[in-house]
Each structure stands twice: as C-alpha cells, then as structure tokens.
Design a protein around this nucleic acid. Structure first.
Lengths: 237, 237
DNA sequence: CGATAGGTTGACTTCAATCAAACGACGTGG
DNA sequence: CCACGTCGTTTGATTGAAGTCAACCTATCG
C-alpha cells in the first residue's frame, strides 16, 4: 500500500506545508497583506505551541508563511472545537474586535508574518483598494463558515470526512494528482469535524475499503474523486 | 400553565417582532445603514415567502424593520440548514460577493428596507466611518459563526436548545422578565440547531419538567436562567 | 532495544433519528 | 354553532449512527 507514497519525498518540487516559491506565498490572502510587509515581523512557533490565547487582547494579526496553524475554542469541560486550519498564504486574527475569541496553536512548526492590527485598520481607512480586498476576504470567510455549519449540522461522519479530504486536497500543496500529506493528526481532524478520533479512523478505513482513497499515516491518495464528491456541494443553483 | 401568558397581549408596549419605536429600529446594525436610508426602498414579504434564492445574483442587501427572516441552505436530498434568524434591526446579505450563498425566507410577514449592494460598496469606499462600522459588523458575524460551530459540533441536544432560548431572549423583544414569544416554528428551530423537530420538542418538554422553562406554543417563559446558562459559554477567559 | 505517542480495531452503550400515532388549535363550510 | 380537515406539535416505540471503553498495533526516538 505504501508503495504509492515512497517516491513522494524524492520529487523535485516536494516541500510539505511550505510555499512553493518561498516568501511571500502566492495565494489569495497573501496580497491583502502585501502593503503591510514592511511593518511585518517574522515569528515562529514550535509544534503545539500556543500563538495566542482565547480571551486575550488582540494586538496582532498573522499571515502563515509555512506550516499549519489551528484555531481552537474550548468549553470548561474540555470539549474542543477547531474552527479552521490555516495554511501558507492564509491570514488570520485580523477581525476588528478587542479580544481574540479563539486561541491559535501551531500544528506543525510554523513561520508567520505578524502585523499590528491597528495598522491594518489604518490601512483599511486610508487605502480604498485595501479596504475592498479586506471586505472580500471577509465575505469568503463568512461563506466558508456557513458551508461548515451545514457540514457540522447535517452531514454524516463519512460525508464530513470526504468533504474534509477534498478541501485539504484543494488547499494543501499536492502534486495535483490527488496525493496529499495532512499536516494534522487524527485528533485535530476529529475536533474540526465534530467527531471523535475513532470515528475519523473508521471513516478513513471505510473509504479505503471501498477503494476511494489510499491511506498511509499522514499521506492520503485520492483514488476516486467522484465517490468523495458525491456527498459534496450544498448548492441547488 | 398558560395563565402566565394570558396578560401578554394586553400590555401597553407589546408588539411582537416589531421595533418598539417604529422605523428605524434602534439596534446595532441599524445605524450601519443609516447613511443609506434615502436610497432604501421598503419591501414586504408574506409568511414563508422567498426573499431571494441561493445562487442568484446578489443585487441588494436588506435591513429587517419588522418580522423575522430565516437564511436557508439546502442539499440536493432536502437536508436543510437555517444559518440564522434575522430580527428587526438586523442587516443581511451585504457580503461583497456576486451571488447569494443562501436563500432568505420570511418566517413571519416581514417589512424590509432594501438597498442596492453596489451603493453599500460605494459608501464603504468613501466614508471611512462607514467602512469601519461595516468591518466591525463583519467581525461580530464571524464571532457568532464560530460560536455557532461550537454549538453545532459539540453541544448536546438539550444544550443547543438552552443556548437557543437564551439567544432569543436576548434578541427578541421581551418584557425583560424572561417571557418571550418565538416567531419561528419547531421545524425551523430544529433546522437551525441541527436536530429533528421531535428532538426539539422532547428537549423543551424536559426543560419544562425540570421547571426551567414554561411553554405555551410559541410563548416561552424562562424560570431558571442559571439552569439554562450552565451549559452555556465556551470561553475559558 | 524499551518507552511513548499516535493510530487502528473491536465490543458495547447511548443519544438522537426514525417511524408511527395521537393531540390541540385553528379555519372552513355545513 | 358545531363537525371536519389541516397543520403544527407532542409523545411513544424502535432503530441506528456515532460515542465510549478497552485492547492492540506501529512508528519514532531516546
């Protein structure tokens, strides 16, 4: 089974969770921050290190340069919800309220560009084009949030997993032929999809048995995109 | 049981789902639109009438004047998800993308103020203060969306219902003493919380048996706010 | 090596969904 | 004014999908 994956690391372009072209990453969100680059500071965080905590004053916002970040909300009894995974090119924590309503943690070792939020506000005030891009970014975030609500509220475990794999295939750097390397562990996936780790495992196993995907630890090969996608898409145009 | 509710309609200030002071409603979102009032057109929709459909071009955005609106997303097999309920003072469909990613329907007969979205964009470009308020509105929307994801993914049926009642008590016009009149039916509540109608009923019944609330069709009296709120709040400050 | 952390599988339980029936409020027409 | 049908809600019986508990497996690393 793992034969399919053996060659991955040797390929010329292979650089997991890293921007193909170094910095800045070529991605939608990245250019939003472009005018602010001179004021950005590069920071790093180790695997599982907290970047900021829920409820603390929101001084900065961040652009992911390399690695993967998770946004986390907790309930007092320990129930955990991962709002989203942030990948190279993604901007986060730029929302204009005083405190963070979630914490951010490094899934892998990450490099970030950090910008004071106040500066973002200033730019949005002054630069018409910047403000417009920021609003568009917002709109996409809201749209994604609504899509996720549908997923969390109405999709079955298998459908959630299928949707997740397709999303990751779209967002993670891949060879373009359905071979992807997940930066996060099963527990994180579970907490992102509103499932338990066991259910995620079983879901992956079932997809593997049906020949829809191949699994080797963090690496997933999508064999039958149609089977994954059939439970996808909530639009009725 | 319904003795507690009998007097409601006779009270001087009672006007369900209507702004207390007529138009414009006094509410956070309302003043965002204030500069646009002269360009707004008043429109109405009957109970269950569609205001706009998912996937159609997004020409206008709306401010609720009276009544209640639901935002709906559908899957091909009929699974339904209500994103949010919009009440007097709430602004919706203002996101800056070309098509609607959800449909909007009147829960009750509604009155709306309709504004061309392009105008909103123009204003945001020109008026610094307006842009800022728009961004703040965004931030609150995103925050609410994240809170809802936690609810959908991690709360039990009873907790979902409790959270919902508290949210509605906060948002719907009430006498301030825990007496509220829900504009939407049980089916809508279920589709908002990712449950079935039966589970919503059972949840309400259980809360009633525990003396936490009193129920009479659409009217709910909150008897023990602490019992409702104990499963509330996801923050660990 | 042995220890550890993360992942997988199995047995069993539980919470919410499903299927089914009855109830109550409301509006219409006899 | 009352019988009747409809719609929304409530309750009960049963099923089923995902959670829980527990054991085992497999990399990785000191």
């Amino acid at each position: 089974m793992s034969a399919a994956f053996q060659a991955i690391e040797q390929r010329p372009g292979y650089a997991p969770y890293k921007s193909a072209a170094g910095f800045p990453p070529r991605h939608a969100d990245a250019d939003v921050l472009a005018p602010l680059h001179r004021h950005a500071v590069t920071v790093t965080a180790e695997r599982n290190e907290e970047i900021f905590a829920e409820g603390t004053p929101a001084k900065y916002c961040y652009l992911v340069v390399s690695g993967c970040v998770r946004t986390v909300k907790l309930m007092e009894d320990g129930r955990r919800q991962i709002g989203e995974f942030l990948l190279p090119g993604d901007l986060f924590a730029w929302e204009a309220l005083d405190t963070h309503d979630f914490s951010a943690e490094a899934v892998t070792r990450v490099t970030l560009r950090r910008v004071p939020r106040a500066l973002l506000e200033d730019f949005a005030d002054r630069d018409r084009d910047f403000g417009r891009r920021l609003r568009e970014l917002t709109a996409r975030q809201l749209r994604a949030a609504r899509e996720r609500m549908m997923l969390l509220a109405r999709k079955t475990a298998s459908e959630k997993i299928a949707s997740f794999l397709l999303e990751m295939e779209r967002r993670v750097y891949t060879d373009g032929r359905g071979l992807l390397d997940l930066p996060m562990g099963r527990t994180d996936v579970a907490d992102h999809l509103g499932l338990t780790i066991e259910t995620v495992c079983r879901g992956l196993t079932e997809l593997r048995r049906h020949g829809t995907i191949a699994v080797d630890r963090t690496r997933i090969a999508i064999r039958n995109r149609h089977a994954l996608g059939s439970s996808e898409c909530s639009m009725v145009h």
